[in-house]
């Protein structure tokens, strides 16, 4: 086991350094790129904290949607399993005929997963819902 600071603490420290010490010393494109780097640090901090539990939830949703059990999962890393399940869903959605209600269930599962992704990469983005603009 590594010594403290742990990954999350180090990412927080790295972000604080970029924000408080480096950015004020930079202008123009370098300031902008450093802001991007800072944002990536914040994303990684949240991913270290939340990523694994979100992947588990995504796997569960996809299994339910695709009617698969634990025995159907690829042996291996969680991330590879989720990618494989997403590939299966993508392939299903490309088929002409789908069971009744499948598209709506898929929409529900994908919306829940997308909100989880946003909680890591852009918290608060889902406060606005563009559905109000439709038709």
């Amino acid at each position: 086991m590594q010594d403290r600071p742990d990954s999350r603490e180090l990412l927080a420290t790295l972000g604080d350094y970029l924000e408080a010490e480096l950015m004020p010393a930079l202008e123009g494109p370098l300031n902008y790129r450093t802001r991007v780097a800072l944002n990536l640090c914040r994303i990684l901090e949240r991913e270290v904290r939340l990523g694994n539990s979100f992947l588990l939830r995504e796997r569960q949703r996809l299994c339910r949607l695709l009617g698969l059990g634990p025995e159907d999962l690829l042996p291996g890393a969680l991330q590879d399993q989720v990618e494989d399940l997403n590939q299966q869903l993508a392939t299903d959605l490309a088929r002409d005929a789908l069971p009744a209600g499948f598209e709506t269930s898929a929409w529900d599962a994908l919306m829940a997963t997308t909100r989880d992704k946003l909680a890591i990469v852009r918290p608060g983005y889902d406060r606005y819902d563009a559905a109000e603009e439709t038709r």
Binding site: W107, L118, V121
Partner: peptide
Amino acid sequence: AASGRRVAEQEYDLLCLLRP
């Protein structure tokens, strides 16, 4: 590189536009 982590914003907006 950071653009990759902005794809989810468009996925979310797309799902909103496609709300059943």
